[in-house]
Design a protein around this nucleic acid. Sequence first.
DNA 1: CCGGATCCGTCGCGATACTG
DNA 2: CAGTATCGCGACGGATCCGG
Lengths: 134, 134
Amino acid sequence: MKGEAVNVDISIDAAGSIAPDLCPVRPLLDRMADKWSLLVIARLAEARGRRLRFSELMRAVGGVSQRMLTTTLRNLERDGLVIREVFAEVPPRVEYELTERGKSFLIPVRTLIGWLEANWPDIQRNRELYDKNE
Amino acid sequence: MKGEAVNVDISIDAAGSIAPDLCPVRPLLDRMADKWSLLVIARLAEARGRRLRFSELMRAVGGVSQRMLTTTLRNLERDGLVIREVFAEVPPRVEYELTERGKSFLIPVRTLIGWLEANWPDIQRNRELYDKNE
DNA sequence: CCGGATCCGTCGCGATACTG
DNA sequence: CAGTATCGCGACGGATCCGG
């Protein structure tokens, strides 16, 4: 058991307002928000179709451990955002590439990041003020 | 110290592609992705200007503990997404309301959720397939 | 009624060592 | 080269008790 499945899902209704429980957004959101998913997707997107090898991706992302890169890529593959192709060679070669769905995911991501960039200075100032007044 | 500050920031450049280190998106992203922030914002947005009391918000969100609701609201207030007003009464009354910035945040959120809704069925099918083949 | 303080379990993540 | 296996820590979040 893990928390009795509270009301952690979010969705939007026809009117555009946010409502819970229409679709399980949370599992997805959790994954997009994990430490490496977005960075991996970003690096694959920059390649613009060129497929990246595991080690290549690891250098491009920077700071990620083998373990985490592997599980991140597995999760993205499981959701159909990334394609993984293994070549039966020695030494082994594995290439990764964004799927169409993976590419389309960049649209909401860019919207979000755009908002963050536009609002970050104000937010930062707000934080300083808040922290100063204890 | 906490992990040596690897390359965990993401941003977008003028061309619209995602690049690291332009602005610290990660601290924000972490917070938006925490367990309750989005739900709290959603409930406040539904109120459409009407301010919600703490207990009211707690029932509306559902499943959140007092502790987590408090810290979530504090964080949102710190970032200027929520306004908190305390009334010196007995029993105490505290009301919460979205700021303009808080409201504007709903735009990227809706974009994201829209994408999730549109893609969730496919993703789910993809997952089942992936899980079946071990 | 609205929180602060404390305790504690869980889990994401990093480090390291090993393998086909 | 591209992983898998194992260990351990630290942060997040839930439960509970207390306080103005």
